[in-house]
Amino acid sequence: MDEKKFAKIEQQLSPKTPLGLNIVKAFLTGGTICLIGQFIAMFYMTFFDFTERTASNPTVATMVFLAMVLTGLGQYKKIAQFGGAGAAVPITGFSNAVVSASIEHKSEGYVLGVGGNMFKLAGSVILFGVVSAFTVALIKTILVKFGVVSW
């Protein structure tokens, strides 16, 4: 049997991705996590000395903390199984990636295990965040120097 013929059979018989349902679940999960974030931001703005802009830092930190607790208690993977990208895209998903790797590699010790593997999933996000920030800022600076755009 050749590969093409088998690929056809495999496509026919493998379960289809329930795309519509996945999208609805991702929307609800991602939306809900952001809604909770908005409540937390409101809390920091109402009870502490934060503005709409500065509240984002403590809000993100709080969300990361909540995701840590849920990951440690074994609940975040259930949310992710339901919500898909809705659980992966918010900062809580980033936290889950870091925390799950940390817990997993505890058995190899805190330096080689936790320290060495903490960012094995989330590290690429930091890499591409930093490199693209540098590139975008550089391009923008060049464009401003040539008078194409202004700050």
Binding site: N22, T71, I79, G83, S100, A101
Partner: peptide, 10 residues
């Protein structure tokens, strides 16, 4: 992935 990592399994 790590056991506690949330990935949507098909």
């Amino acid at each position: 992935y790590p056991v506690e990592y949330g990935s949507q399994k098909p």
